[in-house]
Amino acid sequence: MQNRNQARTPAEFFSQSYRLSCTFDARHHSLGDLLYATTSDYLMLDNAYISPIDHPSHISADYPRVVIIKGSLTFALTTYKDDALRHDQKYGGYLGTQLTTVFITLPHFEITGELRIPGRFDPRILLSSQTGMFITLLNVTARLTSNQEITYHGEAAIINKNQISFMGLPDR
């Protein structure tokens, strides 16, 4: 009997053309810790099931292990926010900060969610390349641009800032 999953945490990953459902070992690091880490440009994941983005329930391929190039990722989605938040976002000064609802467009997706950031919200700082490759949104709905009936929900999403084309913001 195969023993592929090893009680790992599931997550959804989206690139420009594909949906990838897989698991990662969350015993020591959350998905946020792994993606934000600047020591590696890629991520090793297990039990990958690949679907075309416009036919998301069709499993076109599966592999016991896959490598994801962080830079080519559009966003990652988790059911529970604790699986996505970095260690410092869970336990540090991240708590008690303000929530700002934002709208983001990515290749093939439009995303609505909440940014939870400390201090005054300044998109220029948030989107600056000096502040890392990703941003984290909470209570996320991602909608496929070409088929608005296909939506994904999760408590958290980690978004590749380089893939963002527009960001809709609330009034100042």
């Binding site: 599931p10 959804e12 459902s21 099931y49 329930s57 296909i150 939506t151 994904y152």
Partner: peptide
């Protein structure tokens, strides 16, 4: 399934 989205339920 661990695929828990609405599209997965419909499928």
């Amino acid at each position: 399934t661990a695929r828990g989205q609405a599209v997965d339920k419909a499928a």
